[in-house]
């Protein structure tokens, strides 16, 4: 007898469970939808969102990249390639610089590796193309005006490298180079 009662109780508990699920779902028909339609409503993305990559410039408008190959080496999918070159004034820069966005996984490692803060990822994620070759961006496509996330930074102001008018240790905040031959005790 008690078996039957237990079975009946189990049956009703199960039935109630199923009915509750149905009711809960039905109630959702009359609730307000949470969806924001995308192209009409664009969410403000945080600055650090990782999407399309750009090359930025120093405050005085010169290109930042010194073609050190660090980003290229850091990239896990090897989608950055470039050729370094020395300008007439002795400064290094990239003769050409190419990012294949069809391979890029937007991991941001290139940005982390860059000593000059030249290469930066931007929140512009929606750039689809009808042809995969159009994803290969050259330096002209990558280089933008301005300094991106760090507008004030200029690598050559702190680098201690002789370049342009200033020699080694002549820029503000720099100490003159140590003469290693005179450094004996």
């Amino acid at each position: 007898m008690s078996d039957i009662i237990a079975a009946a109780r189990g049956f009703f508990r199960g039935a109630k469970g199923i009915a509750d699920a149905y009711l809960m779902v039905l109630r959702h028909l009359f609730r307000k939808q949470l969806t924001e339609p995308y192209p009409e409503f664009k969410r403000e993305l945080p600055e650090r969102t990782r999407a399309r990559i750009v090359l930025t410039r120093t405050p005085d408008g010169d290109e930042r990249c010194v073609a050190c190959y660090l980003c290229s080496g850091a990239c896990p999918v090897n989608c950055i390639s470039m050729q370094s070159e020395e300008r007439e004034d002795g400064r290094r820069h990239a003769a050409w610089f190419r990012i294949n966005f069809a391979r890029c996984i937007y991991c941001g490692l290139c940005e982390e590796a860059c000593p000059t803060l030249a290469i930066q990822l931007t929140p512009d994620f929606a750039f689809a193309k009808d042809d995969i070759m159009k994803f290969v961006y050259e330096k002209e496509d990558l280089l933008i005006e301005g300094g991106g996330k760090h507008p004030d930074y200029d690598f050559y102001k702190h680098c201690g490298v002789a370049f342009g008018k200033a020699g080694k240790g002549e820029r503000p905040g720099e100490r003159p180079p140590v003469d290693v031959k005179n450094n004996l005790p």
Partner: peptide, 10 residues
């Protein structure tokens, strides 16, 4: 449509 509405999407 119905599945969408049941899950609060259009």
């Amino acid at each position: 449509k119905l599945l969408g509405w049941f899950q609060l999407r259009p």
